[in-house]
Design a protein around this nucleic acid. Structure first.
Lengths: 352, 352
DNA sequence: TTGAAAGCGCTAACAT
DNA sequence: ATGTTAGCGCTTTCAA
């Protein structure tokens, strides 16, 4: 491509061209010139020159001087997931509307990586950090805190910073109940026919599992000990859990509580290559919402977490944090089978 | 939280503590000290002090001085989409392994926003920019070029910078053929029973539509003019297109070519609340891959674009760009119904 | 083997 | 109503 890269104009260039000082140019350019009582005509001249020379602020220089960057960070476990990517989408909208620049990165659910990532972002002097689904939120806190970086946990709570999470217990209770009720009275579900797959030793999973147990006991009067198959947040481990189950029992349960769309993909992998009829009696509850998942050939009841509300609350909290770390619960929503809901994309204009 | 934010240590602090000059400290800290012939012992002292005082480089200062930041940008149309978010996932891996910091932002398929976003990133002195699915790639080029920012188009090509895109014509040809062949010889598809929904006036859509027409003509011997319903990249516009079609014809086509998973969501919205039987005869080809979409109650043939190959090629090209702007085609893959493929997440370790 | 010093582009306190 | 100046923290010649 082209060789001659015209060096970018600086306030000094404009200062020379306009005959005013760098500080005047600076004030004009960043809008503080009214209160510096700079003549309208001076301002206009400078603005005109800036325009003509395509001046743009060097944000690294400004950031160095101000010791903040205008960047706002969002740290996700992974990008490739509808729940988290809709967080990113929603987050971006909020940050943009505040005139700042969103920066989205992922940290692979790895505590080390989470801390390293936070450190890197701090080195760029980001202004705020939103920590989503961190494996070790308090570890991240330990690096944010001494740097004076405002931060907040979302989706998985920490003990040392404010947290906004969805009401996992209530969501799982609704979901478990919905699964059980789905069977009605002709062929009511037996306690040993409902299993939970997925989950891990994190706050969300523990809450969901607790609600699952409690609701089973309340509605079915019993709850066999082996009703839960942890398989992390990995499709393949979940696949193996299903295979193991199938080998042992010769069939799948009639009803499944699946801990997330990622585990749900494990079920899909199990389905692949097996006859569709094998799943015709199945009823699934999935703690996550995916429009495609909602239309599978068997009933899939889903829980949708309220991403918009979580992000909104998180911004409120990060702006005026209460004195003592608190965790806020956001109510999720139960979604009946065959529902196609709107998402963050629907607010974007689109020209066909 | 805590009030006393210990100011971060700088090379000057270490310089005082170690009794050597800032430049020595700098050299030690960024690893160039061997070739500056600095005594091993000096280096060790400094490294030790850095450790003890939790020194971390101020990347804005370094960036200002070097006039580049170590940030590598990825500009997506939207986050909330499996295709694009898997790009982000793959991209991050590549950038991280090069010791740089990935920054993912979206620009809503809005040419203005695309340019503004590029400008902002340039103001932060990012080192490279990967432009995915831009509505106006050449507009973005016009802002990158004078700033001397290396950039490359992915998914949608531009005329002025190198581009890596998937082979949309061949993908759409395979997909159209697969849809038609799906019907076999007992109830062969008539040309007026196969419609394309979605798409827009961009390079990818044009190629796919061209292949769709050509393949219909080749295999079915005819191709009615009205076989294509453009509906952009919007679920709701696609929904309306289906409703209009349904009102006019009293039924859906037997076979659909759907231009992307976003348009596919329009079909889901149409399905919601309508009886499942209405879709029992349907055969769908979707130009995008989604594991859940693959298991819908009717056959869904999908095309998966090779994200890993595209990103890899893009990095190759941005590192050693050929003299003249070129477009590289990456072959996509035809996915049979009921397939659950692995994705970028599968390479992450996960502890259950 | 190391230090001094200039300067990246900007902001803000202090002059005038 | 505007100019001067001193940095922000780092890299990098050039000297020693």
């Amino acid at each position: 491509m082209d060789q001659r890269v015209k060096k970018k104009a600086t306030i000094y260039d404009l200062s020379v061209l306009s005959g005013s000082s760098p500080s005047t140019v600076s004030a004009v350019l960043n809008g503080t010139w009214r209160k510096r009582r700079i003549k309208e005509s001076t301002a206009e001249t400078i603005l005109g020159l800036a325009e003509r020379h395509q001046y743009t602020t060097n944000l690294q220089a400004r950031g160095l001087r101000r010791s903040r960057s205008g960047l706002v960070g969002l740290m996700l476990p992974v990008h490739d997931n509808r729940y988290f990517s809709s967080m990113a989408q929603t987050f971006e909208g909020h940050v943009r509307s505040r005139g700042q620049c969103p920066v989205v990165v992922s940290a692979s659910r790895d505590p080390e990586e989470e801390r390293r990532t936070a450190e890197t972002l701090i080195s760029y002097s980001i202004d705020q950090l939103f920590i989503v689904g961190a494996t070790d939120p308090d570890g991240v806190h330990e690096v944010c805190e001494p740097a004076g970086l405002k931060h907040i946990n979302i989706d998985l709570p920490g003990a040392k910073a404010h947290s906004v999470i969805s009401d996992n217990y209530e969501g799982a209770r609704m979901l478990t109940e919905a699964i059980i009720r789905h069977f009605g009275n002709d062929a009511p579900l037996r306690p040993d026919e409902l299993f939970l797959f997925g989950g891990r030793n994190d706050h969300a999973s523990r809450e969901r599992i607790a609600a699952f147990h409690a609701t089973k006991k309340a509605l079915l009067g019993a709850d066999p000990e082996d009703g839960v198959q942890s398989s992390g947040y990995s499709p393949d481990i979940t696949l193996r859990a299903f295979e193991t189950f199938y080998q042992r029992h010769g069939k799948l349960p009639r009803a499944l509580f699946i801990n997330s769309s990622i585990n749900m993909e494990g079920l899909l992998r199990f389905m692949a290559g097996r006859p569709a009829e094998m799943f015709s009696e199945l009823v699934v509850g999935c703690y996550d919402y995916d429009p495609f998942g909602s239309f599978l050939p068997f009933p899939v009841i889903m829980v949708r977490q309220n991403v918009e509300a979580m992000i909104t609350k998180a911004f409120e909290l990060i702006d005026e944090p209460p004195m003592v770390p608190q965790t806020f619960l956001i109510a999720p929503e139960l979604i009946q089978p065959r529902s196609a809901l709107k998402g963050p994309l629907d607010t974007l204009k689109d020209i066909a």
